[in-house]
């Protein structure tokens, strides 16, 4: 039975509810998809009714203020250490779903060891990896995921692979581990992709609650401020460059250590 509400004496079916986020203004820049990720995650938490059974970790970077928006118990982590915290939480709270929200500087650079080992151990956690190919919070420096030729504040002539290597495709690495049960690359650049992202989050939350192994969702995102583009221009760059280098779709849908 669909939920209904009554307004002005008339009954309406509820087709969508605003996620039960905290009543704080988001600090994300105009056009940034970071907030979409948190909204969708909160929608999933609300719809599954698991607010009491989920704990989140937000490490240094633009993700750190997630605890000002998410409406569930949260821990703030040092730069790169989210997957270590999540491991600690999940090991002593095995009935809970545990998620991290991490940027690419956090996950793919300083926290790569923590991330890979958590995936390899098959910790039943949800890793939400917001990859926008740049350090957003510190002002737009080059990240391990920055595209070849991409201009950033610390690669003013564009990323030179001879100096800095090629962008790291973390999802491709972790899909090889037995410990991961779900590895997918999603985006939120339009409503269709946002709906797909939400489905991915639902699946990952189920995996975590049922201790099936690590779920790794890479959200290929944008960073209008770091990219020095308007929101509209950033969407164009996102689609023409990011989605080409980081193609969307499931890389792995089953696994985990049996």
């Amino acid at each position: 039975m669909a939920e209904t509400i009554t307004k002005n004496g008339q009954e309406f079916d509820v087709v969508w509810k605003k996620p039960n986020l905290q009543k704080n203004d988001m600090h994300y820049c105009p056009g940034c998809a970071h907030g979409t990720l948190e909204k969708l995650l909160q929608e999933v938490i609300d719809e599954k009714g698991i607010q009491h059974q989920i704990i989140g970790v937000s490490p240094v970077g633009c993700a750190v203020f997630a605890y000002d928006y998410m409406n569930c118990d949260m821990q703030e982590a040092a730069h790169g250490r989210a997957c270590a915290l999540a491991t600690g939480i999940k090991r002593v709270m095995p009935e809970h779903a545990v998620f991290t929200i991490q940027g690419d500087g956090d996950l793919a650079s300083i926290g790569l060891a923590e991330t890979l080992h958590a995936c390899n151990r098959g910790e039943s956690i949800i890793i939400l990896f917001y990859n926008n190919a740049i350090y957003g919070m510190t002002g737009g420096q080059m990240a391990p995921t920055t595209l070849p030729g991409q201009i950033t504040s610390s690669s003013p002539d564009g990323r030179d692979p001879k100096l800095s290597g090629m962008p790291l495709k973390v999802a491709n690495i972790v899909k090889e581990f037995d410990g991961t049960c779900y590895v997918t690359r999603q985006a939120a650049n339009n409503a269709v992709n946002a709906r797909k992202l939400k489905k991915a989050i639902e699946k990952a939350v189920d995996n975590s609650l049922n201790n099936r192994g690590t779920s790794f969702i890479e959200l290929v995102g944008n960073c209008p401020s770091g990219w020095k583009l308007t929101p509209v221009e950033s969407y164009k760059w996102w689609e023409e460059n990011m989605l080409k280098y980081y193609p969307l779709g499931d890389l792995k849908t089953e696994g985990g250590i049996k």
Partner: peptide, 13 residues
Amino acid sequence: VSAINMVYGAGAC
């Protein structure tokens, strides 16, 4: 580095 952060996560529970 990871060990102490696992302590953080579990201790905070």
